[in-house]
Simulated assay, not measured.
Amino acid sequence: MATINLPRIIRIGGGALNELPDALAQCGLSRPFVVTDGFLVSSGMVERLTDILAARGMVPTVFADTMPDPTVALVEAAVAQLTASGCDCVIGFGGGSPIDTAKAIAVLAVSPRPVQAMKAPAVTDEPGLPIVAVPTTAGTGSEATRFTIITDEATSEKMLCAGLAFLPTIAVVDYELTLAKPARLTADTGIDSLTHAIEAYVSRKANAFSDAMALSAMRLIAPNIRTACTDPGNHAAREAMMVGAHHAGIAFSNASVALVHGMSRPIGAFFHVPHGLSNAMLLPAITAFSAPAALSRYADCARAMGCAGADEGDQSAVARLLEELAALNADLAVPTPRSHGIAEARWRELMPTMAAQAIASGSPGNNPRVPEAEEIVALYEQVYG
């Protein structure tokens, strides 16, 4: 038996942003607190959002101080402004960081507590303020998930927080918001969403519903990610990437992620590597490590991605999958931790701590092959480069 959880309202397609006021009105909401970042303000995208709301008589409050890897201190500052604003919902507008921040503060505004109290294995189901997610990147799928990630700056730990409280009430998925995104961001977020799909499909918590979403995501993302990077104005590729990221988010929210994500979060926390990029650094090696424990599932991934034929045997299909993941990293200029500039001595020093944090998150326990701490350390050593 599987339990499936989805946003109440999903508006999806080119121009969907214009329908945001209708979606808010459906839920009786009219005073949104918009969580975003400085780049989206300077680019004019936030003004476009607020103009759409103002045209319908809605007066938003804007908090634009989010940053990559949002911290406890940032969340506490945003909660204070939200509480003082009198707003009735929270809009996360941007990539994963604004949406993660929006999710956390929506809960804490109603049920104050230390952010650390929400860290997994805690489960937070009691709802806070309604969450509205409007992604501007095709990557995290956070608009459809019951998770958020907040960094505890005191311990350099990316804390996974889970529960229905973090599932948006409304998701607006408009691929046109991604058309101006640069190649590096497109690549990193695209591989992030591909990783979501693969890990959801091979997860020990996979189910028929999440399988369907994961396979759909792979079919959309794999043939289009290179085009989206090299031809950023290609509407068909951008739409496929956005819908694929959304399906991947639905998939892993209703199954789970696994070892790649467990190992990826500490890299981001300690070395400030963008989340999708750290996933990409890990994905080929972790797939090779895990594949023998779920050969047919990984072979299905290869077929869905189009790198193996429908009638190709599992062993051959998985070999092609590993070749494609390596080729994708090469084509998208994904660095190793070494070539990214991470000092070898510091990397080696932190490998045991990163392994411990990965295991504590719970994600490696969902992997087809569940690793011991020593195996995770060995994988960190392998991927360093």
Results as ranks from 00 to 15, higher is better:
1 M>V: 10
3 T>S: 09
3 T>A: 09
4 I>R: 07
5 N>F: 10
14 G>V: 03
15 G>A: 07
15 G>S: 10
17 L>V: 12
22 D>L: 09
22 D>H: 08
30 S>H: 14
33 F>H: 13
34 V>P: 00
39 F>L: 13
44 G>E: 04
44 G>H: 00
45 M>V: 06
46 V>H: 13
47 E>K: 14
52 I>F: 05
57 G>T: 04
62 V>A: 11
65 D>S: 12
68 P>F: 09
69 D>M: 01
69 D>G: 05
71 T>W: 02
74 L>T: 09
75 V>H: 10
76 E>T: 13
77 A>H: 13
77 A>W: 05
78 A>K: 11
79 V>E: 08
87 C>Y: 06
87 C>G: 13
87 C>P: 11
89 C>T: 05
92 G>V: 03
93 F>D: 10
93 F>T: 05
95 G>M: 04
96 G>T: 05
97 S>C: 00
98 P>Q: 10
98 P>H: 08
104 A>F: 10
109 A>M: 06
110 V>N: 05
110 V>S: 11
112 P>F: 08
112 P>C: 08
120 A>M: 02
122 A>L: 02
123 V>G: 01
124 T>K: 02
127 P>H: 10
131 I>A: 08
138 A>D: 14
141 G>A: 04
142 S>F: 03
145 T>W: 00
148 T>M: 01
149 I>K: 02
150 I>M: 02
151 T>H: 03
154 A>T: 14
157 E>C: 02
159 M>R: 04
162 A>Q: 13
163 G>N: 05
170 I>F: 04
171 A>N: 01
172 V>L: 14
177 L>M: 10
178 T>G: 03
179 L>S: 14
183 A>R: 11
186 T>V: 01
189 T>R: 01
205 K>F: 12
216 S>F: 00
216 S>E: 13
216 S>N: 12
217 A>E: 08
219 R>K: 10
220 L>H: 07
227 T>A: 10
230 T>I: 04
231 D>F: 14
235 H>E: 13
249 G>R: 00
251 A>L: 11
254 N>G: 03
258 A>V: 12
258 A>Q: 09
262 G>K: 06
264 S>C: 15
269 A>P: 01
277 L>T: 10
282 L>A: 03
284 P>C: 09
286 I>V: 15
289 F>S: 06
293 A>H: 08
296 S>T: 14
299 A>C: 07
299 A>F: 04
301 C>I: 11
304 A>L: 10
305 M>I: 06
318 V>R: 08
319 A>T: 15
321 L>H: 11
328 L>G: 10
329 N>T: 05
331 D>P: 03
334 V>D: 10
342 I>V: 11
343 A>G: 12
344 E>L: 15
344 E>K: 15
345 A>D: 11
346 R>Y: 03
352 P>T: 06
359 I>Y: 06
361 S>A: 01
362 G>E: 05
364 P>D: 02
365 G>Y: 07
370 V>N: 08
372 E>C: 00
373 A>I: 07
373 A>E: 12
374 E>R: 11
376 I>C: 03
377 V>K: 09
380 Y>H: 14
383 V>L: 00
